[in-house]
Amino acid sequence: MSASSRFTRLLLYAALCMAGLVMVFPILYAVSISLMPPAEVNTFPPRFLPSAPQWSNYAEVARSVPVGRYLLNSLIISGAVTLGQVATASLSGYAFAFMNFRGKAALFALFMSTMMVPWEVTLIPNYLTIRSLRLLNSYSGMILPFLATAFGTFLLRQFFLQIPLELEDAARIDGCGRFRFFWSIALPLARPGLLTLGVYTFLSTWNQYLWPLLVTDSRLMRTVQIGVRFLMNEEGMQYHRIMAGVVLCMAPALLILVLGQRYLVRGLMAGSVKG
């Protein structure tokens, strides 16, 4: 290896480290602040690290703010939306990929046209609908509007289209019913698609902000994101406690990123079609 290429490598590593530091700095800094004793938070010049980690900040914020409840709410809502969307989308995606019926092309075009509509156009009527159903401050109010999407249908249709039609013919000659073929052959074969849709849906529901803000005003029905929004009001300028709450709220998604990066990335890329 020549000296110049070794020098280039060194330079590249330096650039990688610098860029990496800038990218994760806000995350690490939040963790660091969350472990500082109150006296070290607002000093000047600011400290980068606590003199000794103060774990009690976490206990304190958990006592004054129902962080556990926020996480549970988000988990229930995101889980239900994910399951529901995978269910509705796999049924309709399968029908568009495997079945022939009158009006199929028109219905498919109708489904696809909804992908163009941004949420701010449907926001106000949906709020009025949920309110007139008396579903404000309920899990149903945060789950129902998101149980079906054209995007999910389209994504899973693309996965089902990769399964050869002959497979269904063969299975049916052997006496396999239509629904049984869907349930025990097509669905398992489309598993990567289901996982992709699932991870994407879970994460985007978990990160939802405006909708849960609109339909909840009771503290115990807040999701994680809304809980974070009110942390600053509720904890004053006590940044060590605010950041302890923030870290508790961002831990699950960070864990998912580290563990499921592959599906996450694929899901995000597929999902970004919708924006």
């Binding site: 990218m23 806000p26 990160n207 902000y209 994680v224 809304i226 709220c249 961002m250 960070l254 990123l257």
Partner: peptide, 9 residues
């Protein structure tokens, strides 16, 4: 890593 950080957080 910012992928895992929501806009609110």
């Amino acid at each position: 890593s910012p992928l895992a950080i929501s806009a609110a957080i």
